[in-house]
């Protein structure tokens, strides 16, 4: 059972790499309309903090509008917990955000970025009782809000520090790395 669990988590990681590869194939537009982000988060407070500590996620952003100061994007992402025994958390979000260039550090742009949107998450539980094992899932809808700082340290790569609010259920902090294309 432990090996099956390991394979399922490995599948998640392989899926991430697959999506990144797909995005790379579309990386032809010099305007860099897309941004793919890999991020890890740590819950600080909230109901989700009771058993889920660390999550791993990916996010994809499509920049649809640029002004002189702001860059607006649609974003969609996926988050999952890491190695919570007896429970799994899977979350999907879809929203809209914006990015504003604050200043430059060492000649590299520093952004403040924020987004808000809808969130769908599903928690799955498996518990062993005396005579039976019960598996159940609890789907919920809510909102997701994100506020962070990004530092574009190379032409296409950005380091991100962010705080995320998962509906009324949890607040997390995290770091991420993004690739623009």
């Amino acid at each position: 059972m432990a090996r099956k669990h390991l394979n399922e988590k490995s599948s998640i990681l392989l899926f991430f790499f697959f999506l990144i590869t797909i995005q790379f194939c579309y990386s032809q537009n010099q305007d860099r309309k897309f941004e793919g982000i890999l991020h890890g988060n740590y819950f600080l407070i909230g109901e989700l903090n009771s058993i889920y500590n660390t999550t791993l996620g990916t996010e994809f952003q499509y920049y649809f509008s640029k002004t002189s100061a702001f860059e607006h994007y649609f974003n969609t992402g996926f988050t999952t917990d890491i190695d919570t025994k007896g429970a799994n958390l899977f979350a999907l979000d879809l929203g809209i955000g914006t990015q504003y260039k604050l200043t430059e550090l060492w000649n590299k742009p520093l952004f403040i970025r924020g987004s808000i949107g809808g969130l769908y998450w599903q928690e799955k539980f498996s518990t062993q009782f005396i005579n039976t094992t019960v598996n159940s899932s609890v789907p919920e809808f809510g909102f997701k809000a994100n506020l962070g700082i990004g530092y574009r340290f190379s032409k296409r790569m950005t380091f991100i520090l962010q705080g995320t609010q998962f509906s009324t259920k949890g607040t997390s902090v995290g770091i991420g790395i993004s690739y623009s294309f």
Binding site: M1, S11, Y62, T76, K85, F90, K124, Q128
Partner: peptide, 25 residues
């Protein structure tokens, strides 16, 4: 470009829907 965004969203939605069951303690 927007179609790619929608495809990725749908792929993530499918992934959530087919998410694996946890292993009990």
């Amino acid at each position: 470009s927007f179609s790619l965004f929608i495809v990725i969203f749908q792929a993530l939605l499918l992934f959530v829907a087919c998410s694996p069951d946890p292993i009990y303690v």
